[in-house]
């Protein structure tokens, strides 16, 4: 029943988003725009600049900025017609509502990031296929960290007038650790260094962050939504 409720909320959010494409269009365009602009700043043809060394930073800056745009809509979408009240009055745990929304956000962000990864590879002439599965794993774990924090703060700021501003201000400080881990791991992988050895600690940090903050979100979401 719990899983069914989670999937029902996720399916509803995905269906609504795919019909309007409000968040996807804006976030994907923003993500690609950042990558294009950075390609002007760091000339990929210039041999003095080691693109794989800065690739992790470039990618995750684009990902995290675009994520703030997309995640802002997550609970704000429920304000229209007072839909949030109907969801809170329904017999589903607040954590199921949270997980459903997080799952939909994760799927959308991941899809956009994979598209951007392809564009990044072309723009910066970076080979991504050599470590593609490890890269996708790191992207998935980093994206889940952003999704959990972003969805939680989207719930927390849903009734604020300046929520578009408040969400990134509140979210980014919490993301310093997982973004550092994701950037380091991504740069390593694009440099041809496989997972394991020195970088396994960052992998553990990323995984630990995901577990801890997902648990905290589940514990706190009812208080955040109902007070």
């Amino acid at each position: 029943m719990y899983l069914r409720q989670v999937l029902t909320i996720a399916a509803k959010d995905l269906r609504a988003e795919l019909r309007t494409r409000e968040a996807v269009n804006a976030s994907l365009a923003f993500m690609l725009m950042i990558l294009v602009l950075f390609s002007f700043a760091f000339d990929p043809g210039n041999s003095d600049v080691s693109i794989p060394a800065i690739a992790g930073g470039l990618l995750w800056i684009a990902y995290s900025f675009a994520a703030a745009l997309a995640l802002n809509r997550s609970f704000a979408r429920e304000l229209q017609n007072d839909c949030l009240d109907a969801l809170l009055a329904a017999p589903l745990p607040a954590s199921a509502l949270f997980f459903g929304k997080a799952l939909a956000n994760f799927a959308l962000l991941l899809a956009m990031e994979i598209v951007s990864l392809g564009a990044f590879s072309l723009l910066y002439n970076v080979k991504i296929l050599a470590q593609i599965w490890s890269l996708l794993l790191v992207i998935a774990l980093g994206t889940w960290a952003m999704t959990v924090m972003g969805t939680m703060f989207s719930a927390l700021t849903v009734n604020l007038r300046l929520r578009e501003l408040m969400l990134p201000i509140m979210m980014y400080p919490f993301l310093v650790v997982p973004l550092t881990a994701a950037i380091t791991l991504t740069s390593d992988l694009l440099n041809g260094t496989p997972l394991g050895g020195n970088n396994i600690l960052w992998m553990k940090v990323l995984l630990g962050f995901d577990v801890i903050f997902t648990s905290l979100a589940v514990l706190l979401v009812d208080t955040v939504l109902v007070g």
Partner: peptide, 17 residues
């Protein structure tokens, strides 16, 4: 909550569905 029905000021319906 399964036993109650709530109608507030809004229609609580999704325009996109």
């Amino acid at each position: 909550r399964r036993r109650i029905g709530v109608l507030g000021h809004g229609i609580s319906l999704y325009d996109e569905l």
